[in-house]
Amino acid sequence: MFFLLRMAFWLGLVLVLLPREKTPESEKLPQVGASEAVSAATAAVSDMTQFCKRQPAACEVGGQAATVIGRRAQEGARKLYQIITDKRAPDHTGSIGSVDNTDAAPRDTLTQDDLQVEWRGAP
């Protein structure tokens, strides 16, 4: 649960710090300095750390929910991986017949007559 809160905080911080275009509407917004933003973020984080002391039941249920969601995410990722690996394209194009690798030893198809060297005399 606390991981999700931290992730949301950092993602929000990144989104806030992205450069923006100057528009007439943005000039009307209140201007907040970096030091003010840091002190407000620090206060928010310290308040979040005290949340489980104030609401232990909510933290317990949230932890159980995070565990269930984590397991479902793992199962979903595992199933997606199986779908991808089972349905992937074959390694060959099919224009050449498939190779049967069950017999790894090379087969000798030459007979003894084929192996006899023909005598070539002087012309």
Rank of each mutant, 00 (worst) to 15 (best):
Q74L: 12
R71N: 14
A77Q: 13
R107V: 15
E21L: 10
T49N: 08
W10C: 00
L4C: 13
Q31E: 15
G94A: 00
R6G: 14
K53Q: 13
V45H: 10
K53P: 04
I83A: 11
A58E: 13
D91E: 04
S39K: 11
G33W: 03
A58W: 07
Q31D: 15
L29G: 04
F2Q: 10
L11N: 04
R120A: 09
A73D: 12
T23Y: 00
A73C: 13
D86A: 02
T23E: 08
T109C: 05
K22Q: 09
S95C: 04
G97W: 03
G76M: 03
A57N: 11
R88C: 07
V14C: 00
R71Q: 15
A77I: 07
S26Y: 05
G33K: 10
S46H: 07
D91A: 14
A77D: 11
P56G: 02
K22W: 06
A65G: 05
I96C: 07
V45Q: 04
L29R: 12
H92M: 11
H92T: 15
G94R: 05
M48H: 02
L15C: 06
D108A: 07
G97C: 05
V99M: 00
C52W: 00
D103W: 05
R78A: 15
I69F: 11
T85N: 02
V45D: 07
L13T: 06
V61D: 09
D113M: 09
V38P: 06
E21F: 01
T102F: 03
M7I: 10
V99F: 01
A8Y: 00
D86F: 01
G63Y: 01
P90S: 03
P123S: 10
V99D: 00
F51Y: 12
L13H: 04
R88G: 01
E36I: 10
V38Y: 09
R6L: 13
G63L: 09
A40T: 10
A104Y: 13
R88H: 07
P123Y: 09
R78K: 05
F51W: 10
V32C: 03
R54S: 12
L80Q: 13
D47P: 01
V68C: 03
S98Y: 12
C59I: 06
D108H: 02
V16H: 06
D114T: 01
P19A: 02
T109M: 02
A58M: 06
H92E: 07
Q74V: 12
A65M: 11
D86M: 00
D100M: 01
T111R: 04
E27A: 05
C52T: 01
S46R: 13
G121E: 14
G76N: 06
A65E: 10
G121T: 08
A89Y: 09
M48Q: 07
Q74Y: 05
A104S: 10
R20K: 08
W119P: 13
S26Q: 09
A66S: 12
A73K: 09
S46L: 12
T42A: 15
C59P: 02
G94M: 00
L15Y: 04
L80G: 08
T42F: 15
A40E: 15
L4D: 14
E36F: 05
D114M: 04
I84N: 02
H92K: 13
K87V: 12
